[in-house]
Every structure is written in C-alpha cells, then in structure tokens.
Design a protein around this nucleic acid. Structure first.
Lengths: 267, 267
DNA sequence: ATACAGTCTGACCTAAGAGGAGAGTCAATA
DNA sequence: TATTGACTCTCCTCTTAGGTCAGACTGTAT
C-alpha cells in the first residue's frame, strides 16, 4: 500500500491532482482510512494512472477519460481514439496556418514599422454582385460544418442534372455574431435558372477581396463595414462571401481568395 | 457611433466579450451614456478590436495583449512577437510528437486488442549502474530549462580541458513531484576523475530503457517502481536517467533512448 | 399605449487543478 | 514519553475568457 505522496511521485502527478481525481471518481484510492481519511493506493493502480495521463496527453478531458475507461468494446474505443487523432490533426493544421500568419505579420512589421499595415490592405469598392442561380441550403451551423453542407449540395449536382458554375459562397443571416452556430445559407452557383433553389439578383455592394485563411475573414468584414460607414453608405441587405480560390484548387491557405460582399445604398 | 450589438457584429465577437473587455479595460467604448449605461463605439475602434483578435489568435492572453498594445518601441514589440512565434513552434513540435504517439498507440491497440500493451513494454532488470565522473550542476528547474543547464556544463569542457564520455544524464532529488520546478542535477560524464564535480560510484539498480519522447518518461518510472515493489526490493537512493540516444544524434523522437535507474537493495 | 428588440448589472458557472489555512497523523528522535 | 518534523486531511479561494441566466431598463415602431 502506498501513501499518496509515494504514489504521486511514482506517477509523476501532484498530490492535488490525486485529490481531484478522487473527488470526481476518476481514480479512487484502493483504501481510505476511516478515522484519518488517509488515502492508500495499490501498485496495480499505477497502470491506471499512467493510462489516464496518456489519454490526457492525447487531449481528452477528464470527463471523456472517465467514459473511455469504462468502454469495453474494442471497436468503440478504437473509434474514439481515431476521432481524437483526426481532431488533433485538424488543430495542428489550423495552428500551422496561424503560425504562418504570425511569421508573415512579423516580417511585414519589420519592413514597414507599422503593426497595423498587415490588416489594412483591404481595397473596398462599389460593385454589382454577379447574378447567380444557386442550389442553396440554409441552416444553423457551426463554422466547421460548412463542409458537410457543401457535400449535400454537390451530391445534388448529378441527381438534378445541373451544371455548376464554380462560383460558390455563403450568406450570413445573423444579426448577432455567435461562434458556435450561425444562421447561414451555403450555396453553389449553377447555370440552369429554372432548377435553382434561389435566384440571386445583382445588387449594389461594397466589396473587398480577402487573401488568406478564413480565420482572419472578420478583418475583411471590419474593413468593409468601416468603409461603408465612412463613405456615407448604409447596409441594405445580408452580407455574403464568394470563394474564388480555395483549398479545392490545391492551394495553400496563403493563396486562398475570398470576395466579401455587403449590399449597400447611398444614404 | 455604434451600439454594442452593431459593433459586435462587425467585429465578429459577442456582446459578452465586449462587456468583458470593457470591464478589464482592454477596449472601453468611446462613450458611455451616463444615465442608461449604454455603450457606444466609434468606427475607429474596429481596427483596435481586430488587432486584439489577431493577437488572441497568435495565442497571447488578454493580459499580454494589454501590455503589447501599450508598447511603443518597435524592437520590443517585434521581440515579443518573435518569442511568441518560437513558443508556438515548440508547441507544434510537441503536439506532433503526441500525435505520432497516438497513431502508434492506435495501431498497436488494433493489432493486439489490448489498450495497455503499448505502455507495458518495459523490461526491468537489476544492473550495476556505470561508474561515472561527471561535471554536474544541481538546481531547482523546470523541464524546459534542462537545455540551458547542459549548455553551461558543455561550456566548461574546453575551459577545464576535460574529455566528455558522451554519457549524460540527470538525477532527481525531489521527494514530491512538481511540474514547474524540480530539484534536479544535470550532469555530463567526463574521463578525468580528478576534475570531476561528482564521482558516481556504481550501485545496484533496477533499470529499464525508455524508447521515445520524454513526455512518456513517467511511464518508465512507473514501470520500474512497480517492478521494485513487486519483486521484493526497496528504493535506496535517488533515481537518475542517462540519455543514450537523443535529438543531438539527429534522431526523431521515436528513436530516442533513455535509461532509467533506481538504486535499490533487496528487502 | 404597447410590443418587442436591445441593453444594462449582477450573480453564478465552466476545467483542471494550484495555493494556502488550520488542523490532525505518523514515525523517529531526545 | 514528549516533541519534532514530515506528511496528510478538509475547506476555501483563485485562475481564463468569457457563457448563461434573471430581472430591470431603454429605444423605437406600430
């Protein structure tokens, strides 16, 4: 039987952590002295502790670890691990993009001496949005679900014998911003007007082109809205984006291109 | 003047976030109605908000962002950004190692059907630790500072005209485990006994070899301690590690090799 | 006048422990 | 046997970056 201090040492975790795990029932000591409350652990519990630490390194929360430990089905467990692996991979990619961005930002800053230069490069102009016939689906969705919805749209292409124009985008219906779920319509342009879900008429828009990954798209939005206010226009409709160059053109995030449109009218 | 809702929309942050930033003084509205408490923002503040969001993406805390915004010196700011870049890079590397580990773990699990197999592979044996004469430095340090201390040791090699044996390691004096700072002695083996800081005599040890990155070293410790208890030995001294194959042999983490020693005696 | 959307403050909640206070416990020494 | 010092206990507060109500105002449109 090991005292909590010895056990903590062996497993390389703090006593505080063991207290915590006991409280939440993730790893309860093999024995607890009724009188003194002292916790005693068995050597067999080291394995469990090490397993827990490993799952924690893999990025699972303690709550998830609880569940994983109680899974007896091999396939279920393997599935959970594989999903976590995919999650980690996606996160790695996102962070790689951010790192790249930071690197660029630093070099721009060192050349120009202005920390804002990097985000001020938007040229906003008034332009008629293109007329488009689109297949569209509108729903509450998180940013990471866009792909799913585009999938369903592209599945309809052969079924409904329509011809994609290659011009795809999404429109934001939200009044207030929310990260997890927004009211978004994603759409793909098609040639056949009669088969379209929605016909988007051209309208006067303030527009800019965003270069780079989507994590900085809000800067383009900010730039356009600032421009609209400062130039005596007002917003007259919901904004939308057109994805001009994307990952599907096998380009790196740095080379992606997105057009941001805000319908406007002169005040 | 923009209401908080409009401003939140433009900048793609929630109203709550704006409340929060106001409270901590990171971004206070240009005007607050004395009577109603309503917050009003100016369009110029969009830039600042966007800058804040950008720094947040770079991984700075709000507190750090406060400080960064008030830095007027270019070099200082560039330095902070570069340090952050290095931090992100290091984290990326660590996560890449973990991802690799998880991948291996999954494939081992799918082959063996046992989730523990991966961490049970330690062969513990009784062995005399090698006699060593070492240059050593002992201090309270965090895991990430090891490199620094090794640097100071290697600087002494030419100065004191000693001959490294290539056998390097560290010894842990802590009773209780602590992540941020442990009482550690790092040492490098040298040939000259008379010039050594410490002469490590051979002693009976329970020993195992750990393959892979250092994040899982605690599993080797757990394995050895378990073995010691189960095989009727007791720990008679402080444990230490010898780094046999490391990054300095230009190997990937998977191929690193570390020997873990625990001085023991038969009970 | 009323409805309703927008906003306010304030209180409590999150994950995974860290830190500390004050009290009790264990084993070895004087 | 008494005491010391190390170890452990419970309980409390604190951390980040906001999210989630509740209850009360406010502003505008009908």
């Amino acid at each position: 039987m090991l005292q909590i201090g010895e056990f903590s040492n062996i497993c390389q975790v703090s006593v505080k952590t063991l207290h915590h795990y006991d409280r939440i029932g993730l790893l309860t000591p093999a024995e607890v002295d009724r009188l003194t409350g002292y916790r005693y652990y068995r050597t067999e519990q080291i394995d469990r502790m090490i397993y827990i630490q490993r799952l924690k390194r893999y990025g699972f929360s303690l709550e998830e670890i609880q569940r994983l430990i109680n899974i007896s089905d091999h396939k279920e467990l393997a599935g959970a691990l594989r999903r976590q692996k995919d999650r980690l991979k996606r996160e790695q990619q996102e962070r790689a993009i951010i790192l790249n961005e930071l690197q660029t930002h630093i070099s721009v800053f060192e050349r120009t001496g202005d920390i804002m230069t990097y985000q001020k490069g938007y040229t906003v102009e008034i332009k008629n949005s293109p007329a488009m016939n689109v297949l569209a689906v509108r729903s509450m969705m998180g940013v990471d679900e866009f792909g799913k919805y585009y999938g369903t749209l592209f599945e309809r292409v052969p079924k409904e014998r329509v011809t994609p124009t290659g011009l795809n985008g999404s429109k934001y219906y939200d009044e207030e911003f929310n990260h997890e779920s927004s009211d978004v319509e994603v759409f793909i342009g098609i040639k056949e007007k009669d088969k379209a879900d929605v016909v988007m008429e051209p309208c006067e828009c303030a527009m800019t082109v965003h270069h780079g990954g989507y994590s900085t798209l809000s800067e383009a939005y900010g730039a356009v809205v600032s421009w609209i206010i400062e130039n005596g226009y007002e917003i007259s409709g919901k904004p939308f984006e057109l994805y001009i160059k994307t990952q599907f053109d096998s380009l790196a995030p740095d080379d992606w291109e997105t057009e941001v449109y805000f319908p406007v009218r002169k005040k």
